[in-house]
Computed example of a mutant assay.
Amino acid sequence: MTSKPTIGVIGLGDMGAAYSINLAASGFPSVGFDLQPEKLEQVAQKGVTPAKDIADLVEKSDIILTSLPSSKAFLSVAENEILPRIRPNQLVIETGTTVSSAFIELSKKFDERGATLIDCPVSGGKYGAENRCLKIFAGGSVQTLEKARPVLVVIGGDGMIYHCGETGSGQAMKGVNQLKMAFENAMYLEILAYAQNTGLSLEQIEEIWPDSWDDRIRNVAAEVLKGNGSNISVKFRELPYFTDDAAKRSFQLPMTTALHEFCSKGEYSFFDDHRDAPSFWHELTRPASNT
């Protein structure tokens, strides 16, 4: 029987911790690293071997998964920590959201070392990671995806792995996903803010346009009525990923730019995807004289 490859996971937050624990439970030797010692202790209790540092993890791993908090963090770790230590035939799978054009350029440096970097960003959050039901947008060759598939099935399930094309296309598809979510939420919030600011009730709107009051806007409206409008995400932190990528590819995203610029005027006092950000809803409902 062929032994399973050792999988190293860099970044043990909600997503990475679930990856490493599920891999260990599925019989893959699992190594993890995070800058926070308590994260290492938590996964160690579930059969994951803590690495001393990234160099140690790269040395012990056949396949490396990254789950880092931002595009900037991933690009820095991949280029400065993983790349200098990578071995021929090692595979690195990025599962976070990264600027597509920057990812493509970095992947070429891995190619030069005889290793492979592919993009497999995921959608589904902590629940999806813990329960292995993530949508995975894969970019890279068909052959490399087949090599990665047994690992991807463990972290996200077998039914939602989508091969989007060559390297970088997975990140581009994740961008479509994030922009779709951002603009659906932003559109509904702006409609609801207009209604509220002009004295209309949300119940009136649903009564007059019942066919267009679908589950998504109904859910957003419910959060607004509960006073949670400020916590509805418009993906503020990631919007520059897509405008930067567009600029590098010589096209424009005017609505994305405008949404980010509008939110940027506010205070970073709310949470968007668990991180400090200005709230679109808060800015929409502030008196104009205070903006």
Rank of each mutant, 00 (worst) to 15 (best):
V220Y: 03
E238P: 06
L239A: 07
S233N: 11
V224M: 00
S233T: 15
F236P: 10
Y241Q: 07
I232M: 14
V220L: 04
S233C: 12
L239S: 07
L259A: 01
P240T: 08
S233E: 10
P240I: 10
Q252V: 02
Y241K: 02
F242W: 11
E238K: 14
S250L: 01
G227W: 08
A258V: 14
N228E: 08
F236E: 13
V220K: 03
V234G: 09
K248M: 09
T256I: 01
Q252P: 03
R249N: 11
A246I: 01
I217D: 04
A258Y: 09
R216S: 12
A222F: 03
I217K: 07
V234A: 15
E238R: 14
V224G: 05
P254D: 01
V234T: 15
N219K: 08
S250A: 08
T256C: 00
V220S: 02
L225P: 00
F251H: 08
A258H: 11
R218D: 08
L239G: 06
S250E: 02
A222L: 12
T256E: 00
E238D: 15
M255E: 03
K226N: 07
T257L: 07
P254F: 00
K235V: 15
H260F: 12
R218V: 05
A258P: 10
N228T: 00
L239H: 08
L259Y: 00
F242E: 03
V220C: 08
N219E: 11
Y241D: 05
P240H: 09
A247K: 14
R218P: 04
I232C: 13
M255N: 05
G227R: 03
K226D: 10
L225V: 10
D244G: 13
R218C: 05
E223L: 11
N231K: 14
M255R: 02
A246C: 02
A258I: 14
A258S: 13
S230A: 13
V224Q: 02
V220T: 12
K226F: 07
K248F: 06
R237L: 15
D244P: 06
F236W: 15
